[in-house]
Amino acid sequence: KVTYHVPNEEFARKLYKKAVDANLNVEIRVENGQFIIHIE
């Protein structure tokens, strides 16, 4: 399980798409202006 803290929405979207394309379980949320992405 990996967690990324991404300040940039564009990068967060790319990361999310890559994980989904790889059939990984992804959860994304915004906290204090940062995008928190959990990948399992």
Score class of each variant (00 low, 15 high):
6 V>K: 02
33 G>V: 07
16 Y>C: 15
27 E>D: 07
20 V>A: 06
32 N>G: 08
18 K>A: 14
7 P>Y: 15
11 F>A: 15
37 I>V: 12
7 P>E: 14
24 L>N: 01
9 E>C: 14
10 E>M: 04
25 N>E: 07
20 V>Y: 07
21 D>P: 02
30 V>K: 08
16 Y>L: 08
2 V>L: 10
35 F>M: 03
36 I>P: 00
35 F>Q: 01
20 V>F: 07
11 F>H: 10
26 V>L: 02
16 Y>I: 10
2 V>W: 14
20 V>N: 03
10 E>L: 04
22 A>E: 06
27 E>N: 07
2 V>A: 07
28 I>N: 00
31 E>M: 07
35 F>N: 00
35 F>A: 01
6 V>P: 06
40 E>Q: 12
11 F>M: 14
15 L>Y: 03
38 H>S: 14
2 V>K: 10
13 R>D: 07
12 A>R: 04
8 N>W: 13
8 N>S: 10
13 R>K: 13
13 R>Y: 13
3 T>N: 05
33 G>A: 03
22 A>N: 08
21 D>W: 11
33 G>I: 05
15 L>I: 11
13 R>N: 10
39 I>V: 08
26 V>H: 00
2 V>N: 06
15 L>S: 01
6 V>H: 05
23 N>D: 05
19 A>D: 01
14 K>V: 10
4 Y>V: 12
31 E>T: 05
9 E>Y: 11
12 A>T: 03
37 I>A: 01
11 F>V: 14
25 N>P: 05
17 K>C: 14
11 F>Y: 12
21 D>H: 08
40 E>R: 11
39 I>H: 01
18 K>P: 02
29 R>E: 06
27 E>F: 12
23 N>G: 15
37 I>C: 04
11 F>W: 14
16 Y>H: 05
23 N>T: 05
38 H>T: 15
2 V>C: 15
37 I>M: 03
37 I>Y: 01
10 E>R: 05
16 Y>V: 08
28 I>L: 11
32 N>F: 09
37 I>T: 01
18 K>F: 13
24 L>M: 07
37 I>F: 02
4 Y>H: 04
14 K>M: 12
19 A>E: 02
8 N>E: 06
10 E>T: 05
35 F>Y: 12
10 E>Y: 07
39 I>P: 00
14 K>Q: 12
5 H>W: 14
10 E>W: 09
7 P>R: 13
18 K>H: 10
2 V>M: 09
39 I>E: 00
5 H>Q: 09
34 Q>R: 10
9 E>D: 04
10 E>S: 07
15 L>V: 08
2 V>S: 06
5 H>F: 14
9 E>I: 09
11 F>C: 15
17 K>V: 06
36 I>Y: 12
31 E>Y: 06
33 G>W: 13
32 N>T: 04
28 I>D: 00
25 N>I: 13
28 I>E: 00
22 A>P: 01
34 Q>P: 01
11 F>E: 15
21 D>V: 06
7 P>S: 15
40 E>L: 13
23 N>A: 06
17 K>D: 08
21 D>N: 08
20 V>G: 02
21 D>M: 11
31 E>S: 07
8 N>P: 04
26 V>Y: 01
40 E>G: 12
3 T>K: 06
3 T>Q: 06
24 L>V: 03
18 K>N: 09
14 K>N: 08
15 L>D: 03
26 V>F: 04
18 K>C: 15
22 A>V: 05
27 E>Q: 11
22 A>Q: 08
1 K>G: 14
4 Y>L: 12
4 Y>P: 02
34 Q>F: 14
31 E>L: 09
40 E>N: 13
29 R>G: 03
26 V>G: 01
34 Q>V: 15
7 P>F: 15
39 I>F: 05
38 H>D: 11
28 I>T: 01
20 V>D: 01
4 Y>M: 09
35 F>K: 00
37 I>K: 00
14 K>I: 12
11 F>R: 06
9 E>H: 05
5 H>S: 09
12 A>K: 04
35 F>H: 01
39 I>R: 00
34 Q>S: 10
32 N>A: 08
29 R>P: 00
2 V>P: 05
32 N>D: 09
40 E>M: 14
9 E>F: 07
12 A>L: 12
40 E>K: 11
13 R>V: 08
23 N>I: 12
2 V>D: 04
24 L>W: 08
25 N>F: 12
22 A>M: 14
26 V>Q: 00
3 T>S: 07
4 Y>W: 09
30 V>N: 06
26 V>K: 00
10 E>V: 05
12 A>N: 03
9 E>K: 06
13 R>I: 12
18 K>D: 11
6 V>D: 04
28 I>P: 00
19 A>W: 12
1 K>E: 07
32 N>I: 09
22 A>Y: 09
2 V>H: 11
15 L>Q: 02
29 R>K: 10
33 G>L: 03
23 N>P: 02
21 D>F: 08
23 N>V: 08
38 H>W: 10
4 Y>E: 02
36 I>E: 03
34 Q>H: 12
40 E>V: 12
24 L>F: 08
29 R>L: 10
33 G>P: 00
14 K>D: 12
35 F>R: 00
5 H>N: 07
24 L>K: 03
3 T>P: 04
9 E>A: 09
32 N>Y: 06
15 L>A: 03
7 P>C: 09
28 I>S: 00
32 N>Q: 05
22 A>R: 08
14 K>T: 09
2 V>E: 05
12 A>C: 13
29 R>D: 04
20 V>S: 06
9 E>N: 02
36 I>V: 11
1 K>R: 11
17 K>Q: 13
24 L>G: 01
40 E>D: 11
1 K>C: 15
21 D>Q: 12
19 A>F: 15
